[in-house]
Design a protein around this nucleic acid. Structure first.
Length: 860
RNA sequence: GCCGAAGUGGCGGAACUGGUAGACGCGCUGGACUCAAAAUCCAGUUUGGCUCAAACCGAGUGGGGGUUCGACUCCCCCCUUCGGCACCA
């Protein structure tokens, strides 16, 4: 009988489904193991061959761990909010929930077709109001929290109110302080506005990336993706929701050290956070009250600051500019405003305009000109710099172009380049109060920082590149933000009990025509009256970005049907943290940073028990087309999993994707390779079953030979170890070796072959279940104990020992294992080939490694 | 430019803590079975020399140098590919 994979696979998928084989109860005494796949966005195109790679890998591990006696949590769901469904709705007026539902059905069918062992009772969908109720709930928790710098964690906003009522702003790091009495005398609106600036979710007027064609703003990190697709993105100031992820900069950095993640991903996150140590310094503007604050990583070069540069958008520009310069400044500002950050970056030559104003270098008291230039960014540091052209490449370039003075204040030795940016020895840096001359850079930094602090014009600080997270989108198809703007100018968060705030259904899915989302057109939904105060209010029309739902879905899987909490605390403790998280490296900084941030807020507020959600992370590599190029429709090299499964079966598909090479590597698809593993599965089939489809007579209860038993134990060991190490390719080769050897036998020991079926079952579960049944076992392989190997029986009894002359192999001998050094040496020296080299030569040295080699070093 | 990862047969890839490079699979070559083909099975397959063959000898893990009895593995320099960042003061 032929290996009829279509029938077999359908049969076992139905079996697993109807018996709920992979359902995992929460209360169990077994050790827990939580393995998570990044859940997909269910696009209209269906699954591509890239998806099953990671899913198969985790599936093999999960099936293996179940057999090893673990309680395995392995869920799947849908990250289903997103722009494509909304754009489709604009064209067709079909509600996004309809298309989303269709796409989810396709994805679910395709995933089930691969025999992946998910617990389908835990399926979640981010667009389900029962799910996004809790996304909104977490939003409110974040909104109703502030970051307490003393405790270095998020705390409920009431604690800030209590603090202000008790101590005023005494313990807060802000510019303008007030007392507790001042606080009590403030109006509702004043209090509201003051508190608002401390919330972890807040509204700010900031320059954003507005995309007219999409009708929405984009996060900085999303811009590249859309400009690559040909969309135009411009900078414009807008009121937007932000999340204060910057408060967590150093904790995100610090806690990353404990994570078992790919180094490149950790590195990317580190760069993204971009911590740099330096100092803030204040420069007095000549003849004005204004002071300019700058951040510098090289405060030791302060004596060499010969001019200053403000970002064109800097708020002090108008105050500093002299009347004769105003026109030119306006022109320059206009020019830079239309440039995107990207264009500003690719500009070859630096440009700038003198403001007419001067500042004092605090160390020398000298007047230095203040310029504006777009090589200084408003978004980093203070948006202003002190320019030290002697020791900064950019400042040097600018100074040369505009003939600004250059002073050397760090000695870099005789070979130092014209612009020396490294650490060196301070020179030309002294005044009546402080001298950096002769000091190595690190000491000079400390000395000047102390001086700045004493003078009250600066202090050592730390800056981060990380910016706050732009959290709102002008879209319909996202979670509504549960905030109401009241007519008294205050904002009111909805009560938790009122959640979910569901999306209204729209007649037409059209852009609002303004910068608001299409929700602005749902007048009935938008206008509300506050029950508490009777004030009229208007709902927030922005929705959350797609990242919101995926920030916490791993928690919902733990308790997906809970109506009274996002996740039961006991269950959370049972399953968290995630033991293995597998997904694409394209999420290295976005999803993986945002969800760590949310997790830490939830941790601070006491809702989760671990600091980090994902202890171990791995990325699956990209699967390229057969031509070794990226798969794309236009290249016509896309491989569809449906076709592969139809032709070779899901087991072959799974096996091939794992056999291609290391999980994390990028590798090309190869249809011949699928045929190769398909042949292997056919061999396995024929190993067990004859033409009639009954058990082959060669399988008998016999004692295996020592050699065959050894191979068996080696195979059990290697397959298990390799699954744990996610080295599926080598596990498969070992099984192939085992099968090749077994094929040679005329009589095949039944017990060992039965166990082999179990070894194969995580990889090719359908085939394994079928064979297991034919072998007379009524129960599924899913919870059969994993075969145990005997270490002693893995060891070879005879080993080949290499005989070398000066490190080159000249002969080999096969000896009993653990043959003594003395005996090995004797064998080597007696060996005919070795003798040819040693005859008449002086032996200088003998190196003997037991069970490995003898190396004889001879003179000449 | 900076940061990170990686370079092994015709191809995908193996190789434990420095100890037999090329496991396993694909492809290819030859053979068996067949009227024939497919499927299957057997043998061979890094490369060069000598050879009917074996034995033997030489070269070989991107390139160059080094450490070592011995290097795909460790160190230095360079090249290439991929990924990320991009005036971050």
């Amino acid at each position: 009988m032929k290996y009829d994979f279509l029938t077999i696979e359908r049969k076992w998928q139905e079996y697993w489904d109807s018996k709920k084989t992979f359902r995992v109860p929460d209360a169990e005494t077994k050790q827990k193991f939580y393995v998570l796949d990044m859940f997909p966005y269910p696009s209209g195109a269906g699954l591509h061959v890239g998806h099953p790679e990671g899913y198969t890998a985790t599936d093999i591990l999960c099936r293996y761990r179940r057999m090893k006696g673990f309680a395995v949590l392995h869920p799947m769901g849908w990250d289903a909010f997103g722009l494509p469904a909304e754009r489709y709705a604009m064209q067709t007026n079909i509600h996004p929930s309809v298309t989303t539902g269709r796409n989810v059905d396709t994805f679910r069918r395709q995933i089930k077709m691969l025999g992946l062992s998910y617990d389908w009772e835990r399926e979640v969908n981010t667009t389900d109001p029962k799910y996004y109720k809790w996304t909104q709930w977490i939003f409110l928790k974040i909104y109703n929290s502030w970051f307490d710098p003393k405790e270095h964690k998020a705390r409920p906003i009431e604690t800030l109110e209590h603090e202000l009522a008790a101590h005023g702003t005494k313990n807060l790091e802000i510019e303008k302080h007030f007392t507790s009495d001042d606080w009590k005398n403030k109006s509702k609106k004043e209090k509201h506005d003051f508190i608002a600036q401390f919330r972890l979710a807040f509204v700010a007027e900031i320059p954003v990336n507005w995309c007219e064609a999409l009708g929405t703003v984009l996060a900085n990190e999303e811009v590249a993706e859309w400009t690559e697709k040909g969309y135009t993105v411009e900078r414009r100031p807008m009121r937007q929701w932000m999340m204060r992820i910057t408060a967590y900069s150093d904790r995100l950095l610090e806690d990353a050290k404990e994570l078992d993640w790919p180094v490149s991903t950790l590195e990317q996150q580190r760069n993204w956070i971009g911590r740099s140590e330096g100092a803030d310094v204040e420069f007095q503007v000549k003849g004005k009250a204004e002071k300019i604050r700058v951040f510098t990583t090289r405060p030791d070069t302060l004596f060499g600051a010969t001019y200053m540069v403000l970002a064109p958008e800097h708020s002090l520009v108008d105050a500093i500019a002299t009347p004769d310069r105003v026109q030119e400044i306006q022109k320059y500002r206009k020019e830079t405003a239309i440039k995107s950050d990207l264009e500003r970056g690719t500009e070859k030559e630096k440009t700038g305009v003198f403001t007419g104003g001067y500042a004092m270098n605090p160390t020398t008291g000298k007047e230095i000109p203040i310029w504006i230039a777009d090589y200084v960014m408003m978004g980093y540091g203070t948006g202003a710099i002190m320019a030290v052209p002697g020791h900064d490449d950019r400042d040097m370039e600018f100074a040369k172009k505009y003939n600004l003075p250059i002073i050397k204040v760090v000695d870099g030795g005789s070979n130092a380049p014209e612009c020396f940016v490294e650490d060196g020895i301070g020179i030309n840096s002294s005044n009546n109060e402080v001298s950096l001359n002769g000091l190595p850079t690190p000491e000079a930094k400390k000395t000047i920082a102390a001086w700045l602090a004493k003078k009250g014009i600066g202090k050592a600080t730390v800056q981060y590149k990380l910016r706050d997270w732009l959290f709102s989108r002008q879209r319909y198809w996202g979670e509504p933000i549960p905030i109401i703007y009241l007519e008294d100018g205050t904002m009111k968060a909805m009560d938790e009990k009122e959640l979910p705030l569901e999306l209204p259904s729209l007649e037409k899915f059209q852009p609002s025509g303004t910068t608001e989302s299409p929700l602005a057109l749902a007048t009935n939904w938008i206008n509300v009256v506050d029950k508490e105060t009777g004030l009229k209010g208007r709902r927030e029309t922005n929705t959350m970005p797609q990242w919101a739902g995926s920030c916490w879905y791993y928690l919902r899987f733990i308790d997906p049907k809970n109506d009274s909490a996002f996740c039961d605390a006991t269950k959370e403790k049972r399953w968290m943290p995630i033991d293995l998280y597998v997904g694409g490296s394209e999420h290295a900084v976005l999803h993986l940073m945002y969800s760590r941030f949310w997790h830490k807020v939830l941790y601070d507020l006491g809702y989760v028990s671990t600091k980090e959600p994902f202890v171990k992370l791995r990325h699956q590599g990209i699967i390229l087309g057969e031509d070794s190029r990226k798969m794309s429709k236009s290249r016509g090299n896309v491989v569809n999993p449906d076709d592969v499964v139809k032709e070779y079966g899901a087991d072959s598909m799974r096996l091939f994707e794992m056999f291609m090479g290391p999980l994390e590597e990028m590798k090309p698809w190869n249809t011949r390779g699928v045929e190769g593993v398909f042949r292997f599965l056919n061999r396995v089939w024929r190993l067990f079953l004859n033409e009639e489809g009954t058990l082959d007579t060669s399988i008998q209860d016999v004692t295996p030979t020592i050699e065959y038993e050894r191979l068996y134990h080696q195979t059990v060991k290697k397959v298990g170890d390799d699954i744990d190490g996610l080295r599926f390719n080598t596990a498969i080769s070992q099984m192939m070796i085992f099968v090749n050897e077994t094929m040679k036998l005329e009589v095949r020991p039944r017990k060992l072959l039965e166990n082999f079926v179990l070894l194969l079952s995580p990889f090719a579960p359908h085939l394994a279940e079928e064979l297991w049944e034919k072998l007379g076992h009524p129960k599924s392989t899913a919870y059969e104990p994993w075969p145990v190997y005997d270490e002693a029986k893995c060891a070879e009894s005879r080993v080949e020992v290499v005989l070398q002359i000066n490190g080159k192999i000249r002969s080999k001998v096969t000896v009993a294992k653990n043959t003594s050094d003395v005996e090995l040496e004797r064998l080597a020296l007696d060996d005919a080939n070795i003798k040819r080299y040693t005859d008449g030569k002086r032996i200088i040295k003998r190196i003997i490694i037991q069970n490995k080699l003898v190396n004889i070093v001879i003179a000449g």
